[in-house]
Amino acid sequence: MNPSFVLPYTAVLSARFRMLLQYRAAALAGFVTQIGWGAIRIMAMEAFYRSTTAPQPMNLEEVVTYVWLGQALLGLLPWNPDTEIRNMVRSGTVAYELVRPVNLYTYWFSRSLAFRIAPTLMRSIPLAMLALLFFGMQPPASPESLLVWLAATAGAVLLTTALTVILSITLMWTISGEGVAFLAAPIIYLLAGMVIPLPLFPEWAQFILEMLPFRGLCDAPFRLYMGHISVAEAWAVLLHQWIWIFILVGLGAWMLSRAKRRLVVQGG
């Protein structure tokens, strides 16, 4: 690809990234909260495992690793629209977005990519270190597991970004964005495996959970990491992710072209 073609997008990505890295206090607060929540979730899971005699699809040690991975990568979940785009839609500054000689979808995707990665990166590495050393999180099952987990995490990043852009585009209709975040967050948390690991869901729910895109955000990559899904089966996880990435990018681009046509810029 012509380097000047991608320049606007990489430029806005790296600028946003640098801006987000300034929020160190927020990162620290998130870090502390997520350790607390992780501990609570693990206590609940321990209580559950102690009171059951039936064999479970995951042992407690695996669940602990699953929970800590989830806590470390919490910020990656598409639980809210891009705050920068929300502010622009509210203030009407979004008009400037449309006078840039760029493809608006790609431009917003680049912004949201930074918005998802930067805060997560700041929190996840120290949190994972701590959990590995002190809180019973296990290292990857094998070097191969580590590799397929990395590949699936890359897929999860694109998936979450595609979903975040869709959430951001809904702002063009709803303006505030709070309602959307309110609806989206609990549903996505549940269906991604952030509340209860997906393998612990009842049998009848498994098919639905397998089909939906959300398992590609947390559940599937986590299970690749711990070898709960074998390296040989990794291709199915990646294929599932990439099919959904294509669908959601297509959907987002279509929504944005519709939104542009009905756009009423606030004020002025």
Binding site: S4, L7, P8, T10, A11, V12, A15, M19, Q22, S91, G92, T93, A95, Y96, V99, R100, P101, V102, G267, G268
Partner: peptide
Amino acid sequence: GVVFGQRTQLWWDLPVIESFDLLRDIYR
């Protein structure tokens, strides 16, 4: 070129020169 007087097209948290550099890249 467009200026909406009531709104800024500069990045609120960035120094002016970085906004300019960013616009250089966006406009290629």
